[in-house]
Design a protein around this nucleic acid. Sequence first.
DNA 1: TTCAAATTTGAAATCGCTTTGAATGGTTTC
DNA 2: GAAACCATTCAAAGCGATTTCAAATTTGAA
Lengths: 339, 339
Amino acid sequence: MRLKDLAQHLGLSQTTVSRALNGYPEVNEATRVRVSEAALRLGYRPNANALRLATGRSGAVGLVLRGSSDFGPHMTEFLAGIGGALTHGELDILFSTVETYEEEVAIYRRLAASQSVSAIILHSPTIADERVGLLTELGLPFVLHGRTHADQAHAWLDIDNEGAIERATSHLLDLGHKRIGLLNGLKGRTFSEHREAGYRKALQARDIPFDRALVGHLPWIDEIAFRMAQSMLELRPRPTAFLAGSMMTALGVFRALRIAGLTLGRDVSIIAHDDVFPYLNADNMVPSMSTTRSSIRAAGARVAELILQLQAGKPVTSVHELWPVDLVLRQSSGPAPAD
Amino acid sequence: MRLKDLAQHLGLSQTTVSRALNGYPEVNEATRVRVSEAALRLGYRPNANALRLATGRSGAVGLVLRGSSDFGPHMTEFLAGIGGALTHGELDILFSTVETYEEEVAIYRRLAASQSVSAIILHSPTIADERVGLLTELGLPFVLHGRTHADQAHAWLDIDNEGAIERATSHLLDLGHKRIGLLNGLKGRTFSEHREAGYRKALQARDIPFDRALVGHLPWIDEIAFRMAQSMLELRPRPTAFLAGSMMTALGVFRALRIAGLTLGRDVSIIAHDDVFPYLNADNMVPSMSTTRSSIRAAGARVAELILQLQAGKPVTSVHELWPVDLVLRQSSGPAPAD
DNA sequence: TTCAAATTTGAAATCGCTTTGAATGGTTTC
DNA sequence: GAAACCATTCAAAGCGATTTCAAATTTGAA
């Protein structure tokens, strides 16, 4: 069923039918109704490619994932957010996987040259992420989830990692903790740097010296967090509290504490960052987990909305969102044990 | 840079340039080289939408995820497999998320009518999955990951769940276990039924009665498996072995055993199904985990390849793959304890 | 040298839609 | 009754590629 067929069927020109369906004002209301009904009844849908070719809008937003590191619960949630916000609109999600940075660059170039997508969702930035410059140069609009230093004006959405960790750290310091382990994210990622900055700020405010041995960089994997927590627990004096970068990290610390015979919330405190996974509820854990909380799914949904706004003509310079992060205190964080 | 521009630049017609780039035989070798070089140098890429309109091929494969249940480590791995196999080809992945079955149907209709995709990757089938009929009726080629009963001939790839569990169960029975808990997947899913069938077959072969109380249906979530394992451990006589449907399930059982003061591999045995997550190695666990193993990432990659073959004209009736499943015995499965 | 065949190139039609610019018919105004 | 004006509708020209069919050039054989 092409537009032509529908028009013929109705005894109208393609022009009129097209206009009727697209809500142009210069078409008779009676005709519009007749056309709409016929279209619905006959199941007419404009051919996506013809439509895109004619309008120049590509109707899809690109998302590139690094096979090695990007796949995981976080990305899954982020995807779910994007998907939820976008399938109701007219934009499709076109996604690709790559292994190397070179491949990623190649994909962006291809997407730009072939005009396959009208925007990109960029994520997991490093401190000075070259992809911002690249996409700008290619003329591909994009929204960055996270932040980076770049000369080019660009749209981004991030959570206040620095503020969150600063508050969490301050809270632990208030409780008397002096040696606090920071199980941070991968080195080089902006959010990791921001978190460390918040951590240092809080320490500095109380003149507690910064100890490099108490800071680790790791992926969000239970097992790796477990080992790192174990080795930190061997330090003397040993840390009495941990800041865990993710819930998976926290689970690893849990295990290390249990094996060491330490009681969570009494001997050692934990505050974890909670990205709000539906299947991993900080409140249901035993003991319940104190967290800095921000839904990564919500962030994904919002990024998608921002893409839509960008498409609608909103200037990139006005698309900057910094989300505050909740600090939710539960049982896993308590006063430091007496020496 | 359009084809027209490139042709003009070279002093050739669009026809010749197009042919040169697409490897048609009737173009002079010297011309072809000249064209190819210019295209590369000037960064020419055919406009994806124009190309698709002209050829009729849509250049994308659709993948629909249910927001509520499909997102998770398994889907992530599956996606990674698809992505890896497809980004090197000329097919893009277009994905949508839905909440309900009705929405999913609507999406397929839309994709079919608008010819946005040239094929679908269908997954997580139920025993008699209506989507097979729907897609057939819509004329959308697809490959099913899993199996279902359907009147329509269709392409599928599945692993031998029944055989795997039958072997695992038989092995446990050989070791003297008589009461074996089956922590199966969600009710209604084909793979769950197949696994139960394998389980029953093995029991039947030794005249061990089937006990409904020893079978549970659950999603692959650690926490839920934990609770179900706990309640099964309260049965008397209590099960001396578990078949865990996923590694997450196994982790839940681990926890339940530890809390119950039971030693894994001695008091209670486990054989888990391992979908091969890069971050969760059965071999590294303590004790190491006996598993039925089949990489879901590899399955994703293969499904993508099959889609490509389908596009190339391979008849659906010849696209049926049933993968055997390894049984890897490690420390978590041992002889049944003496009564 | 000539003519048919083979090789190489190009003009124009096509894919299914949007959109420009013109045409049609009916009202209103003077 | 003619002019001016609206409200509708349509024919045709794009969008940027592929592909059909015809034309031009070379080649080879007689």
